[in-house]
Design a protein around this nucleic acid. Structure first.
Length: 684
DNA sequence: AGCACGCCGACT
DNA sequence: GTCGGCGTGCTC
């Protein structure tokens, strides 16, 4: 018997190990690296591994790594990406040839491939799924457009003037580190102020500093309005060769922008969530603005989050990392807590000097107003608006309608949570016992963990008629509405003249000189909600609105009206987003909630969910529980959802276990649609 | 995902 | 006696 390594070569002369794959047919094969390892663009999880094909000599030059190709797979032609070219095949059988190269454009760069693979692993998805998010659909006409040559001389290196970072502790050091080619990682709490330095200028200056080091940069923002703001600021900072990359811009502009980055014509990409995967050459800095915004969560499988993709990328490519907003997400706080990133914040005195005066009008403060205290716009708030209107525009923020009914403590308004697993409580039917949405345990003897009260109340939805109501309350005053459902849509800016500006969260127009005041209505509705992040979301929206108001010494004031959750309201009044995030993270750690632990949800028909979950080892399984709401279209029985929970350190094992289980599921063709989400944005 | 092969009911 | 159901298996 020969050595074990000879077993596979049975029947071949021992002295002549196979060097070249056998050639099939008359087609000549490429001289160099004749084997292409490809990723097949098909959904089933068990196909998520490389398949090998021979590269015909005629395709040798075109079939570079990263190009799109057509291959014969299972009797039909399918799309695939060339992952790499190698000398020898691992596959034992004969190899089929590539059918054709769709385009010579190597759309998946080695760095993006590594990132996409890591993302697929991290979110229990397939490489094909992630590449579908990362690589825009090909647009042949755009690809054929002549590259402008010479008409755009590379601009001189931007002048370094980090004035926007001067107010922040560690701000100047961050820029310097960037400019000298380093990879600092920062969690940044932006100061308010349309009047002073604005956040887009700070982002632009960070990008400019990165360019000074000779590296490219990538900025991911929630929506198109923020995108425009960053691009304007970049232009002002002397960075004209930035490109805008957003799926919403349409197929041709999107692919054009993608190619500009890929071909190295644009060193800076500013985009929405999918651009976290953009092929920026020699990347030196990734930025995620307002990472708490739910728009950063990709709604398509495998549901990656832009902030986390960028964090992965910073690790894989050794780039600098900047995540920031007026608020701080609990996940960003976790980056600080794990000493993965450093805080960049202004000191208290600076914060006080830049922020408006903030007051809360809760039922306690309004007690002496009598029954009128229950009004949606109590008299003190009305007076604030009236007085501020003499100074300039007044912003009125109204929570979006359409909240899921949840239950909260009747006294302190803290969201009610399960005594066993800390999932959110809901009332399945009128008058029934509150039930945990995760583990289905009944909460008959519920007691508030915040204040000890034992009475629950359900929380209502917001109203849509605010603009009309205000119009009647302030006759003769111009009322402008901004929001997805407003007649004029979302307004980017409004003039500096007195007017009431009614906006839903995220749709607040900017005023050059700042609002004279902001009134945040229905605080109780804003801070309640089944989601774990209801409080965090409310604070983020409030801060975003309040950040548009003039500082206190210029008369700016903010009033939050209603009985919001105490600690959220207090965090706003004290303008302390970092403190709020730190306390919230501590509490999540105590209660075993993410991001202190890692969780995954598995949603689908009961038997399918059970099968997927049963194959995952060493996890705590909560539920399954029927998902709220009516059954999915065409189904009689509502889907169920299980929550899997592991300690943070076992997060990778959780994802790997789920990936393996999904591979078994697809190979066996177990029925039904099952959705697996790691670290879902709303663990409702 | 598609397409093979492979064993058990109602039809020419 | 066959045509055909969709249960495993494979696809370089």
């Amino acid at each position: 018997m020969d050595g074990p390594e000879q077993l596979a070569l049975e029947g071949l002369p021992v002295a002549a190990p196979r060097r070249r794959p056998r050639r099939t047919g008359p087609v000549a094969v490429a001289e160099e690296a004749p084997v292409a390892r490809v990723c097949i663009d098909l959904p089933p999880a068990h196909l998520d591994r490389p398949f090998e094909y021979l590269v015909p000599a005629s395709l040798d030059a075109a079939a570079r790594p990263g190009t799109r190709v057509k291959v014969r797979f299972g009797g039909q032609d399918v799309d695939a990406y060339v992952l790499e070219r190698v000398d020898e095949a691992e596959h034992e059988g004969t190899l089929a040839p590539l059918r054709r190269v769709v385009s010579g454009e190597p759309v998946v760069t080695p760095a993006v491939l590594r990132l996409a693979r890591a993302a697929a692993d991290r979110w229990a998805g397939t490489l094909a799924d992630v590449l579908r998010l990362a690589v825009p659909p090909r647009h042949a006409r755009v690809e054929a457009e002549p590259t402008p040559v010479g008409d755009e001389p590379r601009p001189p290196a931007p002048v370094l003037s980090g004035t926007a970072w001067a107010p922040y502790r560690g701000g100047a050091a961050f820029l310097q580190h960037l400019a000298s080619g380093g990879a600092p990682r920062a969690v940044w709490t932006a100061l308010p102020g349309p009047a002073g330095e604005r956040w887009p200028d700070a982002v632009a200056q960070a990008v400019a500093s990165c360019l000074v080091s000779g590296r490219g940069a990538l900025v991911v923002v929630p929506d198109a309005r923020d995108l425009d703001r960053v691009l304007d600021a970049l232009r002002a900072a002397g960075v004209p060769d930035a490109v805008r990359l957003a799926a919403d811009d349409g197929p041709a502009p999107r692919y054009r922008a993608f190619l500009a980055a890929l071909r190295g014509r644009a060193r800076v990409v500013v985009g929405t969530r999918a651009s976290a995967f953009a092929p920026v050459a020699d990347l030196g800095l990734v930025v995620c603005w307002d990472d708490g915004d739910s728009l950063h969560a990709e709604p398509r499988a495998p549901y990656p989050h832009a902030r986390e993709v960028l964090a992965l990328r910073a690790d894989l490519e050794g780039t600098a990392f900047l995540v920031g907003g007026h608020a701080r997400s609990v996940e960003a706080q976790a980056l600080v807590a794990h000493v993965w990133a450093r805080e960049v914040v202004a000191d208290r005195a600076t914060v006080r000097a830049r922020t408006p005066r903030v007051r809360a009008l809760t039922s306690v403060e309004l007690a002496r107003e009598g029954p009128a205290a229950a009004a949606r716009l109590p008299a003190p708030a009305w007076r604030v608006i009236r007085d501020a209107l003499a100074q300039g525009p007044v912003l009125v923020q109204v929570p979006r309608a359409g909240y899921v009914p949840v239950v909260a403590c009747a006294r302190c308004r803290a969201a009610a949570r399960c005594g066993y697993c800390h999932g959110p409580l809901g009332v399945p039917a009128r008058g029934s016992i509150p039930t945990c949405a995760w583990c289905a345990r009944l909460a008959g003897d519920w007691r508030c963990t915040e204040c000890g009260h034992d009475q629950l109340r359900s929380v209502r939805v917001g109203s849509e008629r605010t603009a009309e109501e205000l119009g009647r309350a302030f006759p003769g005053v111009t009322v402008r509405a901004s929001g997805a459902r407003a007649a004029a849509g979302v307004l980017a800016t409004v003039p500096d003249t007195p007017a009431l500006v009614v906006a839903t969260p995220g749709a607040e127009p900017v005023v050059a000189a700042g609002y004279a005041a902001a009134v945040l209505l229905d605080a109780g509705v804003a801070t309640s909600g089944a989601s774990l992040r209801a409080g965090e979301d409310a604070l983020r929206r409030w801060l975003a609105a309040a950040a548009l108001v003039r500082p206190a010494d210029a008369g700016g004031q903010v009033v939050v009206v209603g009985d919001g959750e105490e600690r959220v309201t207090q965090a706003l009044v004290r303008w302390d987003p970092a403190g709020y995030a730190a306390r919230e993270l501590d509490e999540r750690a105590e209660l075993g909630l993410p991001p202190a632990v890692r969780v995954a949800t598995v949603t689908g028909p009961r038997e399918a969910v059970a099968a997927v979950v049963a194959r995952v080892q060493d996890v705590e399984v909560l539920g399954p529980v029927p998902v709220a709401g009516p059954p999915r279209r065409g189904e009689l029985v509502p889907d169920v959802r299980a929550v899997l929970r592991v300690p943070r350190a076992r997060g990778a094992a959780l994802a790997a276990g789920l990936r393996a289980s999904l591979a078994v599921r697809s190979a066996r063709r177990e029925g039904g649609n099952v959705r697996v989400q790691l670290d879902p944005a709303d663990l409702a």
